[in-house]
Design a protein around this nucleic acid. Structure first.
Lengths: 195, 195
DNA sequence: CTTTGATCTGAACGGATGTTCAGTTAGCGT
DNA sequence: ACGCTAACTGAACATCCGTTCAGATCAAAG
């Protein structure tokens, strides 16, 4: 039998988030019940409410944590060199970061419509922040003459959509290694903003 | 009061599909009940079962119809000229077709995980067919020397992801007309496969 | 005007939903 | 050794779910 009552557990919280993320990604937020998450954790449904006030907040916290990780991850990357070098770094970072957190990426995109308006606004804002990071690189490239981009904001969204698309087909130990995938996409990105 | 019983209605079927598509797109398949769809149509829930055997089939039929429309739409486009011209035609067709059916595009991508395995296989097959249309163009471009594409299949998925991304931000009567959006994306697509 | 049959209603089915809470338990600090 | 309390159970709450079906209704056919 799973975990008996009374036993302390500092790991139930992380296990809850991990189980919820995996189940939300696989079946969707609305299709996963608190009881099912609890079963995955090895606990009764009521116990989950020691770790989250409600299901909506559980989803929101997962999405916010992911978006903040994403922003912090990029901001912590070494930032040196030309705009073109920054674009390459962004491309490779995005692919590497997102393929390693496929569930969180999936949930953060698919479940936006299940957020309350206030929670949606927060996640939307974080997403815009991330897009702006790329947009800034493109504008610098245009300014120094190394790139030709008619609509930097739109190009940012277009490139991010292209790069995130890797998640729909990439499988570790597939035909192409992550490094090879990065190279293929960087080639396309580089050329798409060329003069 | 809405529609009374006994009244014939050859339009309930189309209205059901329209309401289901809009509600699935806005709230997600699992979050929308048959009763809610019925209310939108102006009918009791039980009446819907004159038009679909169950909720799953309703979703599947919507997705299959969309994918078949997409394939038929492209196959009916005039097919003449060079590989580069075909790529431009594909780019413009994809943007125009998808922005005009945002709900269907959204549902057909987001709700894949709510399909039974057999239904999923059908939709997945149609999606692969569409990707292959683009892949074929890229391979022809490589062959005749007008394009440089290291991985045509991956490039197809990358470009389709980029183009479909238009739907996340495009609004009719926004700053850019559809023709302008097509031009921006065609420029990026063209350069990304250049030599 | 009558009959027919497609169309829809309204109620019912068993079961699942998110959330609350009084009560039970087990490990920590003393 | 023992009490304290965080952690968990198990049951309960009202409500909703997809689906079925007997019966009511009404447009159209004869």
């Amino acid at each position: 039998m799973a975990r008996t009552q009374g036993s302390h557990s500092d790991i139930t919280g992380p296990r809850l988030r991990a189980a919820a993320l995996a189940l939300f990604a696989r079946h969707g937020f609305a299709a996963v019940s608190m009881r099912r998450i609890a079963a995955e954790v090895g606990v009764q449904a009521g116990a989950l409410y020691n770790y989250t006030p409600d299901k909506q907040t559980l989803l929101f916290d997962l999405m916010r944590a992911h978006m903040e990780d994403l922003l912090a991850g990029w901001d912590n990357e070494a930032r040196t060199g030309t705009a073109l070098e920054a674009l390459e770094a962004f491309t490779r970072f995005h692919i590497r970061f997102n393929t390693r957190r496929a569930d969180a990426v999936f949930v953060s995109y698919m479940e936006l419509r299940n957020l309350t308006p206030e929670n949606f606004a927060v996640i939307e804002g974080l997403r815009r922040d991330y897009e702006t990071r790329l947009e800034t690189i493109l504008r610098q490239g245009v300014e120094d003459g190394s790139m030709t981009v008619a609509e930097p904001r739109i190009a940012s969204m277009a490139l991010i959509a292209m790069l995130t698309g890797v998640n729909t087909w990439f499988r570790e130990h597939g035909r192409l290694s992550l490094a090879q995938v990065e190279a293929v996409y960087w080639n396309m990105v580089r050329k798409s903003v060329a003069g």
